[in-house]
Simulated scan of single mutants.
Amino acid sequence: MDVEIKVNSDNVLFFNALASETRLKIIENLLPEHKNIKELAHELQLSSTIIAKHIEILEQANIVKCENIKANRGIQKVCRVILTDYHLVFEQKINNSLQQLQQFELSIGHFSAYNVSGTCGLSTVNSLIGVCDDPRYFSHPERYDAGIVWFAHGEIEYKLPSFMFENTNKISELEISVELCSEAPGINENFLSDIYFSINGLSLGKWISPGDFGKLKGTYTPKWWYLTEYGKLVKIKITTSGTYINDELVSNVTIGELGLSQNSDATFKIISPRETDNPGGVNIFGKGFGNYDQGIIVNILRK
């Protein structure tokens, strides 16, 4: 499971939790299997009281989770590592005196058009919308509350509101971030998928999803959910020098070629075509699902 951690003071609990040799050894011991406090104390040759204090720090940092489980001799506290993969992000601060950042978030259910087939569906955090594999339910009124949307083939379109594009000549960068993964039959964490993106009909490039992730529970995914659990955070950034996906140049399309206008909405599409090297579908995660608890976030940077 891959989670993005920003290197800043907001995450001091996380980094403090790792600043201990004992706590690192506890994590190493928990990675193969769940263990209780007594077992950890025995393996590390420390008292249960000391182990419990270290576990409390790891819990506060959301690295370890403990549950009280009935045992032969009463109740025992069993611990496990919540997440196994972290992506550290060193963010460069923007000089607000020179550049202005505007942000807008779209719900993943607020799509304006769709054309999907194969395995497909939608769900809110409480229940499925209609039934699986029936594209007709993509028109259901409850779709606006969807926390996850998936399809094997086709495309889905979102409107980027025109009020975001005032003073288009000053826009130097447009970034769209969304959590995605492949859509395999069942769960398959080694299932490549070519996922393409476009704005106003102009192809921006593709991201190759490594798989359909479901072996571990998504951080925000509801407990009752039984299909795909989480994805990877994908950032599509269009600048004056080209288009980047997760900081890798994927095309020469620049911000000036997008045809952005304050008089008309822009269209953003997520596409999973049949005719491609890896036709593996797509899962789109929104609030209440996955590892990031966000919809489609649009950032616009102006000079």
Rank of each mutant, 00 (worst) to 15 (best):
A146M: 06
G231F: 09
I82D: 04
K159S: 15
L192T: 00
N95H: 07
L258H: 00
V253W: 08
E175W: 08
G186P: 05
L98Q: 12
L260A: 11
C79R: 04
N36P: 07
V149A: 14
E33C: 08
V253A: 02
K77P: 06
N291Q: 10
E257S: 13
Y196W: 14
E157D: 10
S139Y: 00
G214N: 04
P222E: 09
G286D: 10
S209P: 02
C181N: 13
T254A: 01
I50N: 11
I195T: 09
I50M: 10
N299H: 14
S47I: 03
L13Y: 09
I195V: 13
A71W: 02
S264A: 13
K223S: 12
G186Q: 05
K170G: 04
A113F: 08
L46D: 02
Y114H: 15
V64W: 07
I187W: 03
H87R: 15
D10S: 13
I300G: 05
C120G: 11
S162Y: 15
K6S: 12
N246D: 14
E43L: 15
I296Q: 09
A41H: 05
H153W: 14
T49F: 00
V125H: 01
S272R: 08
K159V: 13
I171Q: 02
T49R: 11
E91T: 11
V116R: 05
N11E: 11
N8F: 09
C181K: 12
A41T: 05
C120R: 08
A61Y: 01
Q92P: 04
A146Q: 07
V7C: 07
V3I: 15
E56I: 10
L58Q: 02
Q102L: 15
Q60M: 11
E105I: 14
L233R: 09
W150T: 02
L216R: 11
V3N: 07
L258N: 00
A266K: 09
K93T: 14
G214P: 02
V298E: 00
E39C: 03
K25Q: 10
E257A: 12
I63K: 06
Y220W: 11
F111Q: 03
L301C: 08
A113C: 04
N115V: 08
E275I: 11
F191A: 04
K206Y: 06
E91N: 12
